[in-house]
Simulated scan of single mutants.
Amino acid sequence: MTNSAKPRARAADKRRRLATEAARVLHEQGVERTTLADIARAADVPVGNVYYYFKTKDELVLAALSEHSAHLDELTGRLDQLPDPHDRLKALIEAWISQRETAARYGCPTGTLAVELDKRADGILDTEAGTAIRRLLQWAEEQFRALGLPDPDDLALTLVSGYQGMSLLTNALRDPDIMTRQGAHLLRWLDSLKDTDPAA
């Protein structure tokens, strides 16, 4: 690595650390309660350096939303390795259930951010928060369509609504068992759809 490449690599690493920690801290504390200093401390970056990478807190929120989208893409990319769309959808639900302890403490990362950002007047960040949820809906719709089921867009809405609902209740009641029980209900619902699949 050349001398000029090293500072660029260090800068990219700091920016990535800040974005990663912003995603985590904003999920845990919420946008309004989180300061740039909180994120800088979590990323082990001097607070004065944050402004070199992100001029405003909103830019850090956008970076956090991009991190959540990247995590979703990583998850769906792994699920796409499974040959059967029914198995992909089941694995998605099982991934949600595995996050029940986090959901009980903080809720769904994108869902909670979307709700909080919707209260703001500018209407820019909340649109970005909705992007990740739309991507999940589109991915789920593709799976239902691949199964040959009617109304795949409605089925995707039912699935993602079920997830958001169980995340909200799990968080509000601080009860991870809700995620387990409702996740099992979604799995049974998914199996019942397979029984009506004309290609099955």
Score class of each variant (00 low, 15 high):
residue 159 L to K: 02
residue 171 N to R: 12
residue 187 L to G: 08
residue 186 L to R: 02
residue 162 G to A: 08
residue 161 S to K: 08
residue 151 D to T: 09
residue 181 R to L: 15
residue 181 R to F: 14
residue 162 G to W: 00
residue 163 Y to H: 12
residue 153 D to P: 05
residue 177 D to C: 06
residue 150 P to Y: 02
residue 182 Q to R: 11
residue 186 L to G: 00
residue 176 P to E: 00
residue 168 L to W: 08
residue 158 T to E: 01
residue 158 T to H: 01
residue 155 L to D: 03
residue 175 D to A: 14
residue 166 M to E: 06
residue 170 T to C: 15
residue 155 L to Y: 05
residue 179 M to Y: 05
residue 155 L to P: 02
residue 187 L to H: 10
residue 165 G to N: 07
residue 176 P to Y: 00
residue 150 P to Q: 03
residue 151 D to H: 10
residue 164 Q to G: 12
residue 169 L to D: 09
residue 161 S to Y: 04
residue 161 S to R: 09
residue 175 D to H: 14
residue 179 M to R: 09
residue 179 M to G: 14
residue 186 L to M: 13
residue 178 I to S: 04
residue 184 A to I: 05
residue 167 S to N: 15
residue 176 P to I: 00
residue 174 R to W: 10
residue 160 V to P: 01
residue 176 P to A: 03
residue 155 L to S: 07
residue 152 P to R: 02
residue 160 V to L: 10
residue 173 L to N: 09
residue 155 L to T: 02
residue 164 Q to L: 15
residue 179 M to S: 15
residue 150 P to A: 02
residue 165 G to S: 09
residue 162 G to Q: 02
residue 164 Q to C: 08
residue 156 A to K: 02
residue 180 T to A: 15
residue 173 L to M: 10
residue 157 L to T: 14
residue 175 D to V: 03
residue 183 G to A: 01
residue 156 A to D: 03
residue 156 A to C: 03
residue 153 D to V: 06
residue 159 L to C: 06
residue 160 V to H: 07
residue 165 G to D: 02
residue 168 L to V: 07
residue 174 R to D: 13
residue 172 A to N: 02
residue 159 L to F: 10
residue 185 H to W: 14
residue 171 N to G: 08
residue 161 S to P: 01
residue 155 L to W: 04
residue 176 P to K: 06
residue 185 H to F: 15
residue 155 L to M: 08
residue 176 P to M: 06
